[in-house]
């Protein structure tokens, strides 16, 4: 049964790279690109052809990452989420990842549907949706920094960081 956590870790890394990679793409590249594209009238290229595809892989990669992470924790799942049995550090990473997953499905995606026109919305609703989606996305970039620290070092390198 050692194959399950080993394969789960592989999948967790691949999906996680896709999720956080696209999150960084949105925040470090697309936000600024969209501003410039709106100014020269070419924003539709991004909003019509790039953003919907990026969001599709982004939101489902988030789900796969979380599920693979849960499989990787296996019997330590409850200990991690309750900070028991020396699992507090990886548990913080797991909680941060879970909050980020909620931000994706509870805030970013529902508001992006209004922004991109998949769901009818007035101009006022779109402006509000744009602000909420932007802040949720930026909050996820902020949370990704401690999340990756605790994921990378919370268990495998806990001797270095936490003296365990």
């Amino acid at each position: 049964m050692d194959y399950v956590p080993a394969l789960a870790r592989w999948l967790h890394f691949m999906a996680g790279i896709m999720w956080i990679g696209l999150l960084y793409y949105f925040n470090f590249v697309q936000v600024a690109a969209l501003k410039a594209a709106t100014a020269d009238g070419t924003a539709a290229g991004i909003t019509k052809h790039v953003a919907p595809r990026a969001l599709l892989f982004f939101r489902w990669a988030a789900v796969v990452t979380w599920l693979a992470g849960a499989a990787l924790l296996g019997g330590q799942f409850v200990n991690a989420f309750t900070f028991q049995g020396g699992m507090a550090a990886i548990g913080v990473g797991a909680w941060l990842g879970t909050i980020m997953l909620f931000n994706v499905w509870g805030l970013i995606w529902p508001n992006q549907k209004k922004i991109l026109g998949f769901k009818p919305a007035t101009d006022e609703e779109k402006a509000k949706a744009r602000r909420v989606a932007f802040l949720a996305s930026r909050a996820n970039v902020m949370l990704s920094i401690p999340m990756l620290f605790f994921m990378a070092g919370g268990l495998s390198h806990r001797g270095v960081f936490f003296g365990m």
Binding site: N27, F28, F83, G86, A88, A89, V92, L135, R138, A139, V141, M142, L143, S144, I145, P146, F149, F150, G154, R158, F161, F162, M164
Partner: peptide
């Protein structure tokens, strides 16, 4: 006060500060 999440640098610095805070919180638990 300006929201730090409005700028990329503000976001990254906030993330680093949060990492430091959580690190010491976890260290006190373990």
């Amino acid at each position: 006060m300006k929201n730090p999440l409005d700028s990329l640098w503000g976001t990254v610095i906030s993330g680093l500060i949060l990492t430091l805070i959580l690190y010491f919180v976890v260290k006190s638990i373990l």
